[in-house]
Amino acid sequence: MAAVQTRRKRKLGQFLNALRKRAGKTEIDYHALTRKTQSTLSRMENGYISPSWTELSALLALYGASDDERREAEALWEDAKQDSTRLANAAAFTPEARTYARQEADASEVRTIEMIVIPGLLQTAAYASAIRLAGRRFVDASVSVEQAVAALANRQRRLPGLRLHAVIDEAALHRVVGGEEVMIEQLSHLVDMSGQDDITIQVIPFGAGAYGTMSGGGATALLFEEGDPSTVYLEYAGGGKWVDNPADVEKYLLHFDDMAREVALPPADSTSLIRELATALKET
Rank of each mutant, 00 (worst) to 15 (best):
M1D: 10
M1L: 10
M1A: 12
V4N: 02
K11H: 09
K11P: 00
L12M: 10
G13H: 03
Q14G: 12
F15Q: 06
F15G: 02
N17A: 14
R22S: 13
R22Y: 03
K25Y: 10
I28V: 14
I28D: 11
I28W: 04
H31D: 04
L33I: 06
T34L: 12
T34E: 07
K36D: 05
K36C: 11
L41C: 04
S42F: 10
S42V: 07
G47Y: 09
S52D: 09
W53T: 12
E55S: 03
S57A: 15
A58E: 14
L60W: 09
L62V: 08
G64L: 05
S66W: 08
S66C: 04
D68A: 15
E69Y: 12
R70W: 10
E72H: 14
E72F: 08
A75C: 02
L76A: 05
E78K: 15
K81R: 15
L87I: 07
A88N: 10
A90P: 02
A92K: 02
P95C: 14
A97D: 02
A97G: 11
R98K: 13
R98L: 11
A105F: 01
A107Y: 01
E109A: 15
R111S: 04
T112S: 13
E114P: 00
I118N: 07
I118G: 01
I118C: 06
L122H: 04
T124G: 08
T124F: 03
T124Q: 04
A126G: 05
A128K: 03
I131D: 01
R132F: 10
R136I: 13
F138P: 00
F138D: 10
F138G: 05
A148C: 05
A148V: 04
A148S: 15
V149S: 01
A151G: 06
R155W: 02
Q156E: 09
Q156D: 08
Q156S: 07
R158V: 07
R158Y: 03
L159E: 09
L164E: 00
I168C: 02
H174C: 02
V177R: 00
G178D: 08
G179M: 12
E180A: 15
M183K: 09
Q186N: 05
L187Y: 05
L187Q: 06
L190I: 03
S194T: 10
Q196I: 06
T200P: 00
V203Q: 00
V203I: 13
P205N: 10
P205E: 03
A208G: 05
G209H: 05
Y211H: 15
G212M: 10
G212D: 08
T213E: 02
T220R: 02
T220Y: 05
L223F: 11
L223D: 04
F224D: 09
F224H: 11
E225F: 02
D228N: 07
P229H: 12
T231S: 12
V232Y: 04
Y233P: 00
L234M: 14
L234V: 11
L234C: 08
E235K: 08
A237L: 15
G238R: 11
G240M: 06
V243P: 03
P246A: 11
P246G: 12
D248W: 05
V249I: 13
K251Y: 09
K251D: 12
K251H: 09
L253M: 14
H255M: 13
D257S: 11
D257T: 14
A260V: 15
L265T: 01
P266L: 10
A268T: 09
D269E: 15
D269L: 05
S270W: 01
S272Y: 00
I274L: 06
L277K: 10
A280Q: 15
L281M: 12
